[in-house]
Design a protein around this nucleic acid. Structure first.
Length: 743
DNA sequence: TGTAGGCAAAATCCATGCGACGT
DNA sequence: ACGTCGCATGGATTTTGCCT
């Protein structure tokens, strides 16, 4: 049997076939077609026959661990066939709402971003690429980790907006920068020739991966529209196809992976603003000092075109470099979930987990896949949070459970089969679907980690295996949350509640034991306990946890000094290795001004490193004085808040919603999910009446008192009040103020 | 196209009460 | 004496973004 081995790039539904795009062993780009008829499962009610479809097989499947005799029914349109069967009362239907290409991957075990072997023969060409027609089966080729050499191209367009944000119905594309990993170029000239050159470039370079920053949200749609208006056929896909909208706002480009690296921001909580500069900086890349902001592009195009073009080329390069840094991770996620690489970052966590579970269900557990339906959201009790002992503490150890919830799920076999609706847990049953699926992930992760360690440092294998390990961990950690998600196919709030209940029970027993051993318990949250750093007693505690609870806890870090306020989930400490850790406080929040955050960090530094309350107070007062005198750059006054819904949907008048509304009226493209930056200016009325888009404000308009009192003083007082300093000492004009006099 | 709940904090909203004022 | 207007006050609600 002739075989073709290829690395799977993309899957597309054809006429009665599924077309697999891949890179063959020799480096040839190929398309392999399989005839494929979708199917679903019917658990027939008694007496129901086989009158439901043309092709029917009898198979054994499981529903929540119970074996069932099922009919596997083949149909072009499984959703319609299943609905028909349901309407006729023939039984319960499963797995009928999967998309064809997804079902194909699930049923064959193929994974995008991995190698495959197909029995297939050469069948001429399809759209100019060597085509193969399946003659037999196709299977995943296990054990081969490294991706082939992929051709990657990144691009960055520049639009010339007449007013505010560029609009595709009005404002032209004036440049597109391209980067192929070694050389940059920028297409300029009249718009038509830019677009034609872009299409031409992609046809010649024929990349497997097209990388952009915000391609899905903005560029593909923008460029498509401009091309249509200019009469340019926008054939950027393989075989000359045009981009088309795919599931949930993602854009598909046939035969290529369309990767929008801006979506990686979701995976990096440290990056608070979805800007290329922020992400690039986080990734350790060099960022131009004077990166222009959106609102400056128009002026720059007139005043310093060369600078703008060089910035645009930087953007294209940065996007590709980010892709290079994350590609192993992306392809690993793709291989684990079975989702195409360009969907993996777009898809929300729950869908990634679910895709993994569906594959596991069909291929290993032979569990039926329940259809997606809207369930009423049920809330349940979560983790336990201790009231901290406020004030400054010295020498504190932080003990952490190693992945507590996954451990609980496996150890107590918590699953849909074993946890009853009333919360009771059935013991002695064989391992449930969730623990099995989870254990498989953890086993694979352990294997990836040990294989990585055996691979030579700096090798491709090691890099790929480490990325795989991270991807597996991410999916494993999300399984608990998935059970409590009302959109899940395997929605199981009672299981989620059982998991957290066990967690609370465990942490409570650890706290009691710690106290019994004479350790001071200062704070705790869900799966962590902060105790006085007594090595002998801690050792004893860890031993007890291991032998009595069968779970692993480790000393995560030791704080030389740590400060707690009255509030839960907010503290700061200096660790044994000299780092300042700030948790939950204003300094780590994205919705406080830079000046308040910096002042707070400095006060913490003085307090925790120098141990001087007086000097910390003085530092706070200096900042407040400075702000009141207006000696702070405007960019440190910007407050960013996310627009979480359309501005008109807000029940309370929120400053950022008002600003967003005004910006929209002025022609800015502010979308739900965007962060809105504003500055508070002087004048009468509420904050929302005095908030302005940050780029419109000048220093003489700023309400410096607002920043002094409500930002800097508030953030500093939060810290100092924990060591007995009253906020009035910060606000008094100088020395001891009237407050001190009147008590 | 939404893993979960627990939590703090700010700004706004809203009911209430009080004093000033006009009739 | 009575109505109401403006304003302060304090509790409830809305909103965001953090923690684990």
């Amino acid at each position: 049997m002739p075989e073709v081995r290829f690395w799977l790039l993309d899957v597309a539904s054809g006429e009665g076939t599924v077309d697999l795009w891949g890179v063959a062993e020799g480096g040839e780009r190929v398309v392999v077609s399989f005839p494929f008829m979708p199917y679903f499962y019917l658990v027939p009610s008694r007496g129901a026959g086989r009158e439901v479809g043309a092709r029917v097989e009898e198979v054994e499947r499981f529903r929540l661990g119970r074996p069932l005799r099922c009919l596997r029914i083949y149909a072009d349109d499984t959703a319609r066939a299943a609905e028909d069967a349901l309407r006729r009362g023939l039984g319960d239907a499963y797995g009928y709402d999967l998309r064809r290409a997804d079902l194909f991957l699930i049923s064959t075990g193929l994974r995008p971003g991995s190698w495959a072997v197909a029995e297939a023969e050469r069948a001429g060409e399809l759209w100019g690429y060597p085509a193969y027609r399946a003659t037999g089966s196709v299977r995943a080729e296990e054990g081969r980790v490294a991706a082939p050499d992929l051709r990657v191209v990144s691009f960055n367009p520049t639009y010339l907006a007449r007013r505010a944000s560029p609009r595709p119905d009005r404002d032209p594309v004036v440049a597109i920068s391209l980067y192929d990993g070694s050389s940059s170029r920028t297409l300029i000239g009249d718009e038509r020739s830019i677009l034609e050159s872009f299409v031409d470039y992609l046809a010649r370079a024929d990349p497997d991966v097209v990388v952009s920053f915000q391609g899905n949200r903005v560029h593909w749609d923008y460029l498509s529209r401009r091309a249509r208006a200019a009469g340019v056929r926008f054939s950027v896909g393989r075989g000359g196809s045009e981009p088309h909208g795919s599931v949930y706002g993602h854009v598909s480009i046939r035969g290529r992976v369309n990767l929008d690296v801006s979506e990686f921001v979701e995976e990096v909580p440290e990056v608070k603003l979805e800007r290329l500069e922020e992400l690039a900086r986080y990734m350790g890349m060099s960022v131009p000092e004077e990166a222009p902001e959106d609102y400056e592009v128009g002026d720059l195009w007139e005043s310093d075109r060369a600078a703008l073009i060089s910035y645009s080329e930087w953007r294209a390069r940065a996007a590709l470099e980010i892709f290079s840094a994350i590609s192993d991770y992306v392809f690993s996620l793709s291989a684990i979930t079975g989702m195409p690489p360009d969907h993996v970052l777009t898809a929300a966590t729950g869908f990634k987990v679910e895709n993994y579970l569906m594959r596991f269900a069909e291929l290993e557990a032979r569990e039926l896949i329940p259809p997606r339906r809207e369930s009423a959201h049920m809330t349940y009790q979560g983790g336990m949070v201790l009231q901290p002992e406020p004030g400054l503490h010295h020498d504190v150890a932080v003990l952490d459970f190693k992945s507590m919830y996954p451990s609980i799920i496996i150890k107590y076999n918590l699953s849909l089969e074993t946890v009853h609706e009333d919360g009771t847990i059935e013991e002695g049953r064989e391992q449930g679907f969730l623990p099995r699926a989870l254990e498989r992930l953890l086993e694979e992760r352990a294997r990836a980690r040990s294989e990585a360690e055996r691979s030579p440092e700096g090798s491709t294998e090691r890099r790929v295996l480490e990325a795989k390990q991270r991807a597996l961990k991410r999916i494993a950690n999300a399984i608990y949350g998935y059970t409590g998600w009302s959109g899940a196919r395997w929605y199981a709030p009672h299981v989620a509640a059982a998991i957290t209940a066990k967690g609370r029970e465990i942490i409570s027993s650890v706290i009691s034991k710690a106290r019994g051993l004479g350790l001071r318990v200062i704070y705790g949250d869900t799966d962590s306990v902060f105790v006085s750093n007594d090595a002998r007693k801690i050792d004893e505690l860890l031993g007890w946890i291991s032998s009595e609870l069968g779970l692993e806890v480790k000393v995560e870090k030791v704080y030389v000094n740590v400060l707690f306020t009255e509030a839960k989930k907010r503290y700061a400490g200096v660790t044994a290795d000299g780092r300042l850790d700030v948790v939950g406080l204003e300094a780590v929040r994205g919705d406080w001004s830079g000046v308040a955050k910096r002042a707070q960090v400095e006060v913490l530094e003085v307090l925790l490193r120098e141990g001087s309350v007086e000097r910390a107070v003085e530092r706070a007062r200096e900042w407040i004085r400075r702000v009141r005198s207006g000696d702070v750059p405007l960019r440190d006054l910007v407050i960013w808040k996310q627009l979480t819904k359309p501005p008109e949907d807000y029940e309370a008048t929120a400053a950022h919603a008002i600003v967003a509304k005004r910006m929209r009226e002025a022609g800015w493209d502010v979308r739900v999910g965007d962060k809105v930056g504003f500055v508070v200016v002087r004048g009468p009325g509420r904050i929302y009446e005095r908030a302005r888009p940050y780029f419109e404000v000048t220093g003489d308009q700023v309400d410096w008192d607002y920043y002094a009192d409500k930002q800097v003083a508030a953030a500093c007082a939060r810290i100092l009040e924990a060591v007995g300093v009253d906020e009035s000492r910060l606000l008094a004009a100088g020395g001891r103020g009237l407050e001190a006099f009147f008590g």
